[in-house]
């Protein structure tokens, strides 16, 4: 955190940019572009969930897509059964958070080290993927909702104004919601990190043994961080499901988890703005690459990941911050 700006000014700058984008963008761009931007924001939120648990909690989760997918599927299934969207919306945040708490408790109370943590989270996402992928049979139903296997679930009721199932959100309203939520989560996490809880979490990341010897229950704090990350990923999943009005097992896929890791590492580990910038940049690049057919998309993403790890291990935003402050001192 060695940017040239003071922390307070940096927050004001981010807030100003966020609000300008929130209010201004729908006036400037057409609906199609706005839809495209909405998915960037959803991805940014997903990246933020991983950036928080990895960059501040020190938990590298190789299967963050498990919670993203769980959020998307919970919303889809609950919305089909309930119709009105407020309940499913909340449920689809709480369920992934609870699942993350359970999984986290199992891992952290078992004192698994980094690598094994990576494997278990990866495996859990894989189990969910395989399970959901194999539910094409008509016997797999939850209430009125068929799980659909690899066909996914199309055409569930999308988000509506709270309490009024008859008025679904329009594309521009979806944008306001997503952008508003992103800003809220960003500053919510900042507030959390400044609180006593957040400081202890960062202390644990810095030196787990020392924090433990000072009397903090490391296992409990890590589980809580993991659950918060799971809830945010679930929220991103809900928005994702509503954006396309479609969910398929791909939301649990390895590719989804891998992309999230790339966003965070490219944007910068240990910051909250880094994952957002990383997600938007990489997704923009992916869209650009999608318009040509000479170079394969995965090839470029893979090359970026390798190069960033080798040359820019801190990621884009911290490195930029360092350059800025160095330039100022001269």
């Amino acid at each position: 955190m060695t940017s040239g700006l003071s922390e307070r000014n940096r927050h004001l700058l981010v807030l100003a940019i966020g609000l300008v984008l929130l209010v201004g963008l729908p006036w400037v761009v057409d609906v199609v572009t706005l839809l495209e931007l909405t998915i960037y924001i959803v991805y940014a939120l997903f990246a933020l969930s991983l950036g928080f648990i990895w960059g501040h909690g020190g938990i590298l989760c190789f299967g963050q897509a498990a919670f993203f997918g769980l959020g998307a599927y919970t919303y889809a299934v609950a919305a089909i059964n309930v119709g009105e969207s407020s309940g499913p919306f909340l449920l689809a945040i709480l369920l992934p958070a609870a699942f993350a708490a359970l999984l986290g408790a199992m891992m952290f109370y078992g004192r698994l080290s980094d690598v094994y943590l990576g494997v278990i989270t990866l495996v859990v996402a894989l189990i969910l993927f395989k399970f959901v992928n194999s539910t094409a049979n008509e016997t797999y139903v939850i209430g009125d909702a068929r799980l659909g296997g690899f066909n996914g679930i199309p055409g569930f009721p999308t988000l509506n104004w709270p309490g009024d199932a008859g008025s679904p959100l329009m594309p521009d309203e979806m944008f306001y919601l997503a952008m508003g939520l992103l800003i809220a989560v960003y500053f919510g996490l900042h507030g959390l990190l400044r609180s006593r809880f957040g400081r202890i979490v960062v202390a644990i990341r810095e030196n787990e043994t020392r924090a433990e010897l000072l009397g903090y229950d490391v296992r409990l704090y890590k589980t809580a961080v993991f659950a918060i990350g799971g809830g945010i990923a679930g929220l991103a999943g809900v928005l994702f499901a509503n954006w396309g009005n479609f969910v398929s097992p791909g939301v649990f896929g390895l590719a989804q988890s891998a992309t999230a890791i790339i966003w965070v590492i490219v944007g910068g580990l240990g910051t909250l703005i880094g994952p957002i910038v990383g997600a938007v940049l990489i997704q923009f690049l992916t869209t650009l690459l999608g318009q040509q057919s000479v170079v394969n998309n995965a090839f470029v993403l893979g090359a970026i990941l390798v190069l960033v790890v080798l040359l820019l291990p801190k990621g884009l935003m911290p490195t930029l911050g360092q350059l800025l402050s160095r330039g100022r001192r001269k």
């Binding site: 590298l60 980094d114 690598v115 990576g118 891998a258 890791i261 790339i262 590492i265 170079v295 394969n296 998309n297 995965a298 090839f299 470029v300 993403l301 893979g302 090359a303 970026i304 990941l305 390798v306 190069l307 960033v308 790890v309 080798l310 291990p313």
Partner: peptide, 22 residues
């Protein structure tokens, strides 16, 4: 640097998949 290796080789796996697809 175990975690960095994991990340770099994950990038490598994407890169090789893309290369073979091309």
């Amino acid at each position: 640097r175990m975690l960095d290796t994991m990340l770099a080789t994950w990038g490598l796996s994407l890169l090789l998949t893309g290369l073979v697809t091309m």
